[in-house]
Protein backbone atom coordinates (compact mmCIF):
# COMPACT_ATOMS: atom_id res chain seq x y z
CA UNK A 1 0.00 0.00 0.00
CA UNK A 2 2.79 2.42 0.88
CA UNK A 3 5.22 1.17 -1.76
CA UNK A 4 8.48 3.05 -1.81
CA UNK A 5 7.26 5.55 0.84
CA UNK A 6 7.12 2.94 3.61
CA UNK A 7 8.29 4.76 6.73
CA UNK A 8 11.54 3.74 8.39
CA UNK A 9 12.93 4.98 11.66
CA UNK A 10 15.94 4.51 13.85
CA UNK A 11 16.59 5.11 17.53
CA UNK A 12 19.91 6.12 19.00
CA UNK A 13 20.55 6.63 22.69
CA UNK A 14 23.34 8.61 24.31
CA UNK A 15 23.98 8.38 28.00
CA UNK A 16 26.45 9.51 30.59
CA UNK A 17 27.10 9.27 34.30
CA UNK A 18 29.95 10.41 36.46
CA UNK A 19 31.53 12.41 39.24
CA UNK A 20 32.54 16.04 39.51
CA UNK A 21 34.06 18.45 41.98
CA UNK A 22 34.57 22.19 41.92
CA UNK A 23 36.39 24.42 44.42
CA UNK A 24 33.83 27.23 43.80
CA UNK A 25 30.80 25.05 44.46
CA UNK A 26 28.54 25.77 47.42
CA UNK A 27 27.81 22.04 47.59
CA UNK A 28 30.11 19.14 48.34
CA UNK A 29 33.46 19.33 46.65
CA UNK A 30 33.01 15.76 45.36
CA UNK A 31 29.72 14.65 43.82
CA UNK A 32 28.47 11.51 42.14
CA UNK A 33 25.95 12.54 39.54
CA UNK A 34 23.47 11.29 36.99
CA UNK A 35 24.36 12.92 33.70
CA UNK A 36 21.82 12.40 30.97
CA UNK A 37 19.91 10.01 28.76
CA UNK A 38 19.37 11.34 25.28
CA UNK A 39 16.89 9.67 22.91
CA UNK A 40 17.33 10.50 19.24
CA UNK A 41 14.75 9.24 16.77
CA UNK A 42 15.09 9.76 13.06
CA UNK A 43 12.46 8.63 10.59
CA UNK A 44 12.16 8.85 6.85
CA UNK A 45 9.28 8.52 4.43
CA UNK A 46 10.78 8.01 1.01
CA UNK A 47 13.76 9.93 -0.29
CA UNK A 48 12.60 13.46 0.48
CA UNK A 49 10.93 13.62 3.89
CA UNK A 50 12.67 13.22 7.27
CA UNK A 51 11.26 13.45 10.79
CA UNK A 52 13.55 13.97 13.77
CA UNK A 53 13.16 14.09 17.52
CA UNK A 54 15.53 14.42 20.46
CA UNK A 55 14.22 13.94 24.00
CA UNK A 56 16.55 14.45 26.91
CA UNK A 57 16.41 13.29 30.53
CA UNK A 58 18.98 15.26 32.48
CA UNK A 59 20.08 15.80 36.05
CA UNK A 60 20.18 19.35 37.39
CA UNK A 61 20.63 21.05 40.74
CA UNK A 62 20.69 18.83 43.83
CA UNK A 63 18.13 16.14 43.10
CA UNK A 64 16.15 17.18 40.06
CA UNK A 65 15.77 15.02 37.01
CA UNK A 66 14.24 16.95 34.12
CA UNK A 67 12.70 15.84 30.87
CA UNK A 68 13.18 18.23 27.98
CA UNK A 69 12.25 18.07 24.33
CA UNK A 70 15.42 19.41 22.76
CA UNK A 71 14.77 19.02 19.05
CA UNK A 72 11.81 18.13 16.86
CA UNK A 73 11.65 18.92 13.17
CA UNK A 74 10.42 17.87 9.77
CA UNK A 75 12.60 18.38 6.71
CA UNK A 76 12.14 18.15 2.98
CA UNK A 77 15.20 17.80 0.78
CA UNK A 78 15.88 18.24 -2.90
CA UNK A 79 19.10 16.25 -2.86
CA UNK A 80 22.17 17.73 -1.21
CA UNK A 81 21.73 21.14 -2.81
CA UNK A 82 18.67 22.27 -0.85
CA UNK A 83 16.58 21.38 2.18
CA UNK A 84 13.80 23.07 4.10
CA UNK A 85 13.23 22.26 7.76
CA UNK A 86 10.55 23.35 10.24
CA UNK A 87 10.70 22.92 14.00
CA UNK A 88 13.18 23.01 16.88
CA UNK A 89 16.87 22.48 16.36
CA UNK A 90 20.25 23.64 17.62
CA UNK A 91 21.35 27.07 16.49
CA UNK A 92 24.18 27.62 14.02
CA UNK A 93 25.78 30.33 16.16
CA UNK A 94 28.15 27.79 17.68
CA UNK A 95 30.03 25.15 15.69
CA UNK A 96 30.45 22.95 18.77
CA UNK A 97 26.72 23.07 19.29
CA UNK A 98 25.90 21.89 15.76
CA UNK A 99 28.59 19.20 15.81
CA UNK A 100 27.71 17.52 19.10
CA UNK A 101 24.21 18.58 20.20
CA UNK A 102 23.58 16.64 23.43
CA UNK A 103 25.57 13.54 22.49
CA UNK A 104 28.09 13.40 25.32
CA UNK A 105 29.85 10.34 23.85
CA UNK A 106 30.53 12.35 20.70
CA UNK A 107 32.34 15.07 22.65
CA UNK A 108 36.02 14.38 23.30
CA UNK A 109 35.80 16.29 26.58
CA UNK A 110 33.48 16.15 29.58
CA UNK A 111 32.66 19.84 29.81
CA UNK A 112 31.51 22.08 26.99
CA UNK A 113 33.34 25.35 26.33
CA UNK A 114 31.86 28.56 27.83
CA UNK A 115 30.82 29.57 24.33
CA UNK A 116 28.78 26.39 23.82
CA UNK A 117 27.21 26.07 27.28
CA UNK A 118 23.45 25.61 27.18
CA UNK A 119 21.20 28.48 28.18
CA UNK A 120 19.84 26.69 31.26
CA UNK A 121 23.35 25.89 32.47
CA UNK A 122 24.73 29.40 32.46
CA UNK A 123 25.34 29.78 28.76
CA UNK A 124 25.64 33.10 27.00
CA UNK A 125 24.73 32.21 23.43
CA UNK A 126 21.33 30.95 22.23
CA UNK A 127 21.91 27.25 21.62
CA UNK A 128 18.41 26.44 20.34
CA UNK A 129 15.82 27.87 18.01
CA UNK A 130 12.22 27.29 17.02
CA UNK A 131 11.62 28.25 13.44
CA UNK A 132 12.30 27.64 9.79
CA UNK A 133 15.69 26.57 8.47
CA UNK A 134 16.82 26.33 4.87
CA UNK A 135 20.20 25.22 3.65
CA UNK A 136 22.19 23.21 1.20
CA UNK A 137 25.52 22.18 -0.17
CA UNK A 138 27.35 23.90 -2.99
CA UNK A 139 30.16 21.86 -4.48
CA UNK A 140 32.60 23.92 -6.52
CA UNK A 141 35.86 22.21 -7.48
CA UNK A 142 37.66 24.01 -4.64
CA UNK A 143 35.61 22.23 -1.99
CA UNK A 144 32.23 21.89 -0.28
CA UNK A 145 30.37 24.97 0.89
CA UNK A 146 27.45 24.45 3.27
CA UNK A 147 25.05 27.32 3.78
CA UNK A 148 22.26 27.68 6.33
CA UNK A 149 19.71 30.44 6.94
CA UNK A 150 17.22 30.48 9.83
CA UNK A 151 14.26 32.60 10.81
CA UNK A 152 13.05 31.85 14.34
CA UNK A 153 11.09 33.06 17.38
CA UNK A 154 14.32 34.22 19.01
CA UNK A 155 15.20 34.58 22.67
CA UNK A 156 12.64 35.04 25.41
CA UNK A 157 12.68 37.75 28.06
CA UNK A 158 14.43 35.34 30.40
CA UNK A 159 17.70 33.77 29.24
CA UNK A 160 16.36 30.26 29.84
CA UNK A 161 13.17 30.91 27.84
CA UNK A 162 13.62 29.39 24.38
CA UNK A 163 10.19 30.42 23.10
CA UNK A 164 9.40 26.97 21.82
CA UNK A 165 5.63 27.43 21.77
CA UNK A 166 5.05 31.14 21.18
CA UNK A 167 6.92 34.36 20.50
CA UNK A 168 6.72 37.17 23.08
CA UNK A 169 7.43 39.89 20.57
CA UNK A 170 6.63 40.60 16.96
CA UNK A 171 10.23 40.51 15.78
CA UNK A 172 11.99 37.36 14.66
CA UNK A 173 15.62 36.33 14.93
CA UNK A 174 17.66 35.77 11.78
CA UNK A 175 20.82 33.72 11.61
CA UNK A 176 23.04 32.34 8.92
CA UNK A 177 26.21 30.30 8.56
CA UNK A 178 28.69 29.35 5.88
CA UNK A 179 31.05 26.39 6.32
CA UNK A 180 33.77 25.41 3.86
CA UNK A 181 35.79 22.20 3.52
CA UNK A 182 38.58 22.53 0.91
CA UNK A 183 39.04 19.60 -1.47
CA UNK A 184 42.81 19.88 -1.11
CA UNK A 185 42.68 19.68 2.69
CA UNK A 186 39.72 17.56 3.70
CA UNK A 187 40.66 17.41 7.38
CA UNK A 188 40.03 21.17 7.63
CA UNK A 189 36.66 22.86 7.96
CA UNK A 190 36.16 26.53 8.70
CA UNK A 191 33.34 28.96 8.66
CA UNK A 192 31.41 31.82 10.17
CA UNK A 193 27.94 32.51 11.49
CA UNK A 194 25.90 35.56 12.42
CA UNK A 195 22.66 36.18 14.30
CA UNK A 196 20.45 39.19 14.94
CA UNK A 197 17.51 39.31 17.35
CA UNK A 198 15.40 41.64 19.50
CA UNK A 199 15.12 40.24 23.03
CA UNK A 200 11.70 41.14 24.45
CA UNK A 201 11.26 43.20 27.58
CA UNK A 202 10.72 41.63 30.99
CA UNK A 203 7.94 43.75 32.43
CA UNK A 204 8.53 42.26 35.89
CA UNK A 205 11.92 43.96 36.09
CA UNK A 206 12.54 47.69 36.28
CA UNK A 207 15.91 47.39 34.55
CA UNK A 208 14.51 45.11 31.88
CA UNK A 209 11.26 46.76 30.94
CA UNK A 210 12.62 47.50 27.49
CA UNK A 211 13.92 45.32 24.70
CA UNK A 212 17.56 44.51 23.97
CA UNK A 213 18.89 44.26 20.45
CA UNK A 214 21.36 41.44 19.97
CA UNK A 215 23.96 40.72 17.29
CA UNK A 216 26.28 37.73 17.49
CA UNK A 217 29.20 36.93 15.20
CA UNK A 218 31.02 33.63 15.32
CA UNK A 219 34.03 32.20 13.50
CA UNK A 220 35.35 28.65 13.80
CA UNK A 221 37.58 25.98 12.43
CA UNK A 222 38.05 22.25 12.95
CA UNK A 223 40.93 20.02 11.95
CA UNK A 224 40.21 16.29 12.12
CA UNK A 225 43.45 14.46 11.35
CA UNK A 226 44.52 10.97 12.32
CA UNK A 227 47.22 12.28 14.65
CA UNK A 228 45.70 15.56 15.83
CA UNK A 229 42.26 17.03 16.26
CA UNK A 230 41.70 20.76 16.67
CA UNK A 231 38.59 22.79 17.23
CA UNK A 232 38.56 26.52 17.86
CA UNK A 233 35.89 29.15 17.94
CA UNK A 234 35.45 32.87 18.64
CA UNK A 235 32.16 34.60 19.36
CA UNK A 236 31.38 38.30 19.72
CA UNK A 237 28.08 39.24 21.35
CA UNK A 238 26.80 42.82 21.10
CA UNK A 239 23.82 44.02 23.15
CA UNK A 240 22.13 47.40 22.99
CA UNK A 241 19.92 47.92 26.04
CA UNK A 242 16.80 49.87 25.13
CA UNK A 243 16.23 50.98 28.75
CA UNK A 244 19.63 52.46 29.65
CA UNK A 245 20.83 53.10 26.09
CA UNK A 246 24.07 51.30 26.95
CA UNK A 247 26.01 49.02 24.64
CA UNK A 248 27.66 45.83 25.86
CA UNK A 249 30.34 43.87 24.03
CA UNK A 250 31.18 40.33 25.10
CA UNK A 251 33.80 38.00 23.67
CA UNK A 252 34.22 34.26 24.11
CA UNK A 253 36.92 32.05 22.66
CA UNK A 254 38.22 28.54 23.05
CA UNK A 255 40.91 26.40 21.46
CA UNK A 256 40.99 22.65 21.96
CA UNK A 257 43.53 20.07 20.87
CA UNK A 258 43.31 16.29 21.14
CA UNK A 259 45.84 13.65 20.17
CA UNK A 260 44.29 10.25 19.39
CA UNK A 261 46.66 7.44 20.37
CA UNK A 262 44.82 4.21 19.58
CA UNK A 263 42.27 3.89 22.42
CA UNK A 264 43.63 6.83 24.41
CA UNK A 265 43.09 10.47 23.58
CA UNK A 266 44.76 13.10 25.76
CA UNK A 267 43.37 16.58 25.25
CA UNK A 268 43.64 20.13 26.43
CA UNK A 269 41.51 23.22 26.00
CA UNK A 270 41.94 26.91 26.78
CA UNK A 271 38.67 28.71 27.39
CA UNK A 272 38.07 32.43 27.90
CA UNK A 273 35.17 34.79 28.24
CA UNK A 274 35.63 38.55 28.52
CA UNK A 275 32.32 40.14 29.38
CA UNK A 276 31.06 43.69 29.83
CA UNK A 277 29.65 43.79 33.33
CA UNK A 278 26.11 44.85 34.16
CA UNK A 279 24.55 43.66 30.91
CA UNK A 280 20.97 43.43 32.24
CA UNK A 281 20.28 40.24 30.26
CA UNK A 282 23.18 38.35 31.81
CA UNK A 283 23.27 39.86 35.33
CA UNK A 284 20.37 37.78 36.75
CA UNK A 285 22.39 34.59 36.07
CA UNK A 286 25.81 36.15 36.78
CA UNK A 287 26.95 35.48 33.25
CA UNK A 288 28.33 38.99 32.70
CA UNK A 289 31.49 38.00 34.58
CA UNK A 290 34.94 37.17 33.20
CA UNK A 291 36.48 33.75 33.43
CA UNK A 292 39.26 31.71 31.94
CA UNK A 293 40.00 28.03 32.29
CA UNK A 294 42.62 25.55 31.17
CA UNK A 295 41.47 21.94 30.88
CA UNK A 296 43.62 18.83 30.81
CA UNK A 297 42.05 15.47 30.25
CA UNK A 298 42.22 12.05 28.79
CA UNK A 299 39.60 9.91 27.09
CA UNK A 300 39.80 6.11 26.88
CA UNK A 301 37.62 4.03 24.56
CA UNK A 302 36.23 1.22 26.71
CA UNK A 303 34.52 -0.28 23.66
CA UNK A 304 33.62 0.97 20.19
CA UNK A 305 30.55 2.69 21.71
CA UNK A 306 31.59 3.71 25.20
CA UNK A 307 34.28 5.85 26.72
CA UNK A 308 35.61 6.96 30.08
CA UNK A 309 36.99 10.46 30.48
CA UNK A 310 38.97 12.13 33.24
CA UNK A 311 39.37 15.88 33.26
CA UNK A 312 40.99 18.50 35.45
CA UNK A 313 40.45 22.23 35.06
CA UNK A 314 42.06 25.22 36.65
CA UNK A 315 41.44 28.87 36.08
CA UNK A 316 40.40 32.23 37.37
CA UNK A 317 36.97 33.75 37.43
CA UNK A 318 34.85 36.54 38.79
CA UNK A 319 32.03 36.04 41.28
CA UNK A 320 29.26 38.32 42.46
CA UNK A 321 28.15 38.21 46.09
CA UNK A 322 24.65 38.75 47.44
CA UNK A 323 25.36 42.47 47.76
CA UNK A 324 26.37 42.75 44.12
CA UNK A 325 30.10 43.18 44.73
CA UNK A 326 32.34 41.46 42.20
CA UNK A 327 35.55 39.72 43.22
CA UNK A 328 37.78 37.23 41.49
CA UNK A 329 39.46 34.03 42.59
CA UNK A 330 41.26 30.99 41.31
CA UNK A 331 39.38 27.74 41.01
CA UNK A 332 40.08 24.12 40.31
CA UNK A 333 37.70 21.43 39.10
CA UNK A 334 37.80 17.75 38.30
CA UNK A 335 35.39 15.38 36.62
CA UNK A 336 35.02 11.77 35.62
CA UNK A 337 32.49 10.62 33.06
CA UNK A 338 31.45 7.36 31.49
CA UNK A 339 29.54 7.96 28.27
CA UNK A 340 28.00 5.56 25.80
CA UNK A 341 25.80 5.28 22.77
CA UNK A 342 23.53 2.52 21.43
Amino acid sequence: MFGEDSPEFSLRIFGDIGMHGDSKSDHSKANFSFGSLDFVISGSMGERLTFFSESLIEGEHADAIFFDQERAWVAWNEGDSFYLQLGMDNSVISRWNRLYNHGRWLETTITRPFLATFEDQGGVLPMHFQGLEIGGLLAPAAGDLEWVAIIANGRGADIEDRQRVHDDNTSKSFSTSLTFTPSSMEALTFGAAALTDIIPADLNSAVRNGSISEQIYDAYFTWLGEQLEWIGEYAWVIHHDGVSGSNFSHRLIYLQMAMPLDDWTPYTRFDLKVMDQNDPYFVPVDQDLDQWQQLLGVRHELTASSAIKLEIGFGHGQDRDAGGAVSSDDFISAALQISWTF
Partner: peptide, 14 residues
Protein backbone atom coordinates in the same frame (compact mmCIF):
# COMPACT_ATOMS: atom_id res chain seq x y z
CA UNK B 1 37.19 5.34 15.88
CA UNK B 2 37.03 8.71 14.12
CA UNK B 3 35.01 7.21 11.28
CA UNK B 4 32.50 5.67 13.66
CA UNK B 5 32.12 8.98 15.48
CA UNK B 6 31.66 10.71 12.14
CA UNK B 7 28.76 8.41 11.19
CA UNK B 8 27.17 8.65 14.64
CA UNK B 9 27.48 12.44 14.43
CA UNK B 10 25.63 12.40 11.10
CA UNK B 11 22.88 10.32 12.72
CA UNK B 12 22.72 12.77 15.64
CA UNK B 13 22.22 15.63 13.20
CA UNK B 14 19.47 13.73 11.40
Amino acid sequence: RQLRRHFVSLMNKG
